[in-house]
Amino acid sequence: MSGDHDHDHDHHGHDHDHDHPHAPPQPDDKVHSYYQILGVALKELLIEKGVVEAAEVRRQIERRDSITPANGSKVVAKAWTDPAFRARLFADGNSAVAELGFEMTTTKLVAVENTPSEHNVVVCTLCSCYPRDLLGLPPSWYKSRAYRARIVREPRAVLAEFGTRVPDDVAVRVHDSTADMRFLVVPMRPEGTQGLREDELAALVTRDSMVGVAVARAPER
């Protein structure tokens, strides 16, 4: 394979991004640093040597793009409306989400429930463990040093920075993802949602509410 040929693969990548409905608004195609150049060099070399195939790299990117927080929202909405599913979700997260077609590949999904007396929030202080198989890649703040350092030490102050004020009679539980468990917060079902369908409920379940830095959205009246 020639270098030119590999460059073509990069252009396929661009085309794919443009076609994809969930592509970020404007990919940053400019290369800034030595490490970005190194990344391009490594990709070319590993493909040329047959260590990985260009198609496999593309497939992996497509897989990442296909997993969004909406998957988790469906799980939460079903847990809100189906008590038997809710029980299965807390008993065995992996098999419960598999019922909805979502596969946890290498980690164990553990659902934790917000109640009137407990508010859960998730972090990985050591790296960036996150339920990627269900929610997709973690948001940038989740990987940030500030979030990882402070959420275990001053959780209420950090939650307030997200606009979430937890009353003093509600205990804050910070889950540090230090092993192979991945945590999904099931937020409290908002008031005034009795008549809503499952898909309408799912629309209220934001990514941030499933990490626990926010609560589920209130329905529009």
Binding site: D28, Q36, G39, R58, Q60, E161
Partner: peptide
């Protein structure tokens, strides 16, 4: 303070993630 607004991955970051 935590920068609470998430920014999307750049094209380059996605490539590294996929690689």
């Amino acid at each position: 303070p935590v920068e609470t607004e998430a920014h999307p991955l750049t094209f380059w970051e996605k490539q590294i993630d996929g690689l």
